[in-house]
Computed example of a mutant assay.
Amino acid sequence: MTKRGAGVAFIAISAFLISSKYISASIFGSGVLSWDKSLYEAMLYYVGDTLSNFSLLAFIIGLAYIVWGEFEDWKSKNNNN
């Protein structure tokens, strides 16, 4: 797997983690009879920030891998000229 592929994989993991936070909050509150904004925010608070933190970390790692892969490609093209 190339560095670009690894970067895209980490960004996909990031998207999965952030979406699982909101899905978890929705599943947690699935038995509630009435919904409002403050109730959903309370459910998100109950789920916590761990998934958001790991999602941000995976996104930064993925972005770094993509930039690293592009830099190496640019460097190899400039060395050939």
Rank of each mutant, 00 (worst) to 15 (best):
S24Y: 12
V47R: 07
K3Y: 10
D36V: 05
K3N: 07
K21I: 00
K21Q: 11
I18Y: 11
L57N: 01
A12Q: 07
S55G: 15
Y65V: 02
F54I: 12
G31Y: 07
L56F: 12
S34F: 10
G29E: 06
I66P: 00
T2P: 14
N80W: 11
Y40Q: 09
A9R: 10
L44C: 04
L57M: 12
G48Q: 08
E72Q: 11
S55Q: 04
G62P: 03
L56I: 11
G31D: 06
D73C: 10
D73N: 08
A64G: 08
F54Y: 15
L17Y: 02
N53T: 14
S76T: 04
S19N: 01
W68C: 14
G62E: 06
I13F: 05
L33S: 07
Y22G: 09
L57E: 10
G31S: 00
S24L: 13
L51Y: 11
G69I: 01
S52Y: 14
Y45N: 07
A9I: 11
L33K: 01
G69W: 01
A58P: 04
Y40R: 01
F54T: 09
A25M: 00
Y40T: 01
A12E: 08
L57P: 08
G7Y: 03
E72W: 14
V32W: 01
G5Q: 14
D36K: 01
N81Q: 04
F16E: 00
W35S: 08
A15S: 06
I60Y: 13
F10I: 03
S55L: 02
S34M: 07
G69H: 02
I13W: 07
S20R: 11
D73W: 09
A6M: 14
W35I: 03
F16G: 11
Y45E: 13
S55E: 01
S30N: 00
S14A: 10
F59E: 00
N81I: 06
F10T: 00
Y40V: 07
D36S: 14
A15T: 06
F71V: 12
W35T: 01
W74E: 04
W74G: 05
